[in-house]
Design a protein around this nucleic acid. Sequence first.
DNA 1: CGCTTTTTTGAGTCCCATCAACCTTTGTGG
DNA 2: CCACAAAGGTTGATGGGACTCAAAAAAGCG
Lengths: 249, 249
Amino acid sequence: MNQKSASLDGPERCGDCPIRYRAVCAHCETDELALLEGMKFYRNFEPGQPIVWEGDRMEFVGSVVTGVATLTQTLEDGRTQMVGLLLPSDFLGRPSRDIAPYNAIAATKVVLCCFRRKPFEQMMRTTPHVAHRLLEMTLDELDAAREWMLLLGRKTAREKIASFIAIIARRDAALHKRDPGGRMRIDLPLTRESMADYLGLTLETVSRQVSALKRDGVIELAGKRTIILPDFSRLVEESGDDSDGGYLS
Amino acid sequence: MNQKSASLDGPERCGDCPIRYRAVCAHCETDELALLEGMKFYRNFEPGQPIVWEGDRMEFVGSVVTGVATLTQTLEDGRTQMVGLLLPSDFLGRPSRDIAPYNAIAATKVVLCCFRRKPFEQMMRTTPHVAHRLLEMTLDELDAAREWMLLLGRKTAREKIASFIAIIARRDAALHKRDPGGRMRIDLPLTRESMADYLGLTLETVSRQVSALKRDGVIELAGKRTIILPDFSRLVEESGDDSDGGYLS
DNA sequence: CGCTTTTTTGAGTCCCATCAACCTTTGTGG
DNA sequence: CCACAAAGGTTGATGGGACTCAAAAAAGCG
């Protein structure tokens, strides 16, 4: 949108950062924040651009500030499965491991707040807040992965699509501090092919099921990537999940 | 085997514990160990017996000492998917959450080393070793979950079965401090139905594919639950994974 | 506007789920 | 000791949901 480098780079000061209270630095006090500020740098990625490749040495860890990135694994014959979807405030990389186990790829424009590995690992050892927050976030990610496993193993194609849209809608609502419900408008951050890799389907099946949900009035389309939900609860019914959700953390 | 209560309960002293150097207490010094020793108690479970039910309040967290437990999620219509397989030294429960999000069920006889929640959470805050080890274990579990997602989303039934057997064989070998390879004999800790819930299949398909692998000479059967691997690498070929594995942690 | 990328739609096929029958093992009590 | 039941496992027949192959439409993009 804005061509000035200020928009291409991240916020200069952590206090202005949009993910200040959700990222790995959430619980940090001003002195710890200063420490982090000293080891951080920003990197920008274009849609489709790899962030790290499986087997690569990673000299940094970091947080997604804006945009969406994906983690994917592939079998030798080319079948690929997405195993992580990184939204703003999500963390990329693992302390005490410098070889990336997955491909990380920018799905949209991405701004990444990177920390040099060595000083970050040192900080993990000396300050409890960062380590504690990272544990919290990792446990949340594990919960999400298990929800995802239920989807991959037991849901029908139609339920998978409905679940995916519901997940994006919930995260989007959470980002704007609203509750999902009523009429909503959401942008899909992924292509049909990436959705297929997320859901363990082919892109043709994704396209067909999206069309079917539209035909049945569960969703409306405004362009290929924008979805309007007339009734969020209707979508949840189609997802196969318990209606009560249980999404309290 | 042994009817004395000594075999039904866990080891009296942590120093004698079989999972002393792999569980959440792995990095603890003697003084921290004494602290843990003061808040721990043992519980025993029979095969099929629930450990906690989804929605239950958990007044403890703990480690599997011996045996195998499963974590499962279910949709309202009864479809169930296993989302965790807890082997000796694996951790059950999450600090700062007292409502269980999954069903945990003993698959075999299980001895669980339980810690009362409150003192354990206190210890998490005061001693770095326990928190650090728990983060390490959680990150490993996340890696395993992602491997599992690739299996659920993209592998064929035959590959799923081969992968499952390979996973059990690797863990079994690790427990006995051997490398997997050559001729191996392994016991499956799960019924065909539980294997199906692990792999996102039906029990009939599991049975058929096990028979097919036997017919093709990839495995031999000694009873329903005991498998002999004439050649571990042959099994890995059938699993669809890269042969090099990449199982360094 | 050409050109590529993304998406949709169609026709045919196959893998795995479903439904069903049977076998084996284990345990129980008459 | 054996009849019976229950649980776990195997095998067969059938059908359907998702994949594959194929082509065209739509949307970006220089």
